[in-house]
Amino acid sequence: MTRLYSWEGLLFATFVIIFAFNAAFTPDFLGLSNQINLFQLSIEKIILALVMTFIIINAEIDLSVGSMMGLSACAFGYLYQIGTPAPAAIAICLAAGVLGGFLNGWFIARLGLPSLVVTLATLIGFRGLARVMLEDRGIGDFPEWFNALGQKGLIGPLPFALLAFALLFALLYVLLERSGFGRKTYVIGSNRDVADFAGIDTARHKIVLFTLSGLTSAFAGLLFAARVGAVRGDVGSGFELDVITIVLLGGVSIFGGKGTLVGTLLSILIVLNLRNGMGLMNITGHIQTGVIGLLLIASVVIPRIKFATSRGSKPEATS
């Protein structure tokens, strides 16, 4: 545990440095509107990162989140265009998320297929369905209240999506840290066989997690539609890798069993501030991603060096 605490301390220190740097060099950085904007621009990714934390702690991975986002956003556009009332369209999209997530979970937990392969297939498949619905068109002109929900402040200047993120974080934090479900997530992630012998229905647990991931992705897709005000077939494409990077940078072990939501939150703050700062310094998107990539490798190497020198023991084996 001490190691985890110190890891989060390191993340926090990194965040403070980046934040102070941005605040010192950018005049309007500390303004409330810039701070809100910072979160708003990547709100879908950071919401997805919360549930991905559970999935990776559970020693699985979900590559299909970006495509499910796209599917939900495109389904909303399609349904709205053919005359479905927006609330009904929203309900159908969320149901599609539940169904898609359940499908992932069923193949992974009941058939015992690797999640990397199953969600790679649904990454392609869900994206395909999104394209079937919209082909190469873009759809916009959503109802006024729907767009307002994505673009305007709901309580004071705070938009709906940011409030949803805060609420989801609080709920998931309690679920992971204070509930039996959370303990099971860690136990299954560190050793599935032991969890099975302990009488935990590991298959059901995994299905619940993937269904939750599908539902959240569909929700994120709707947020995107409301925030941007238009949808296209490529909504959310490539998001899965950014989301996974955030979670891993937050100290969640790719082998499962280790990690916290606080780590993920700190990582979110670091990535958002770093990108914002680099953006203000006119550094292009590809290079920004490269810097985040370097940070990701450093996030694995640094704790090992520290661990090895302070304890004098060998770093843990990874293969």
Binding site: I61, T245, L248, T289, G293, L294, I297, V300, V301, T318
Partner: peptide, 21 residues
């Protein structure tokens, strides 16, 4: 360095692309 391949190559995918840019 024994870093999991999915982490290394996820990072290097971004790094090599930015090297190209």
């Amino acid at each position: 360095a024994r870093i999991p391949s999915i982490i290394v190559t996820l990072a290097s995918m971004a790094l090599f692309r930015s090297a190209l840019v």
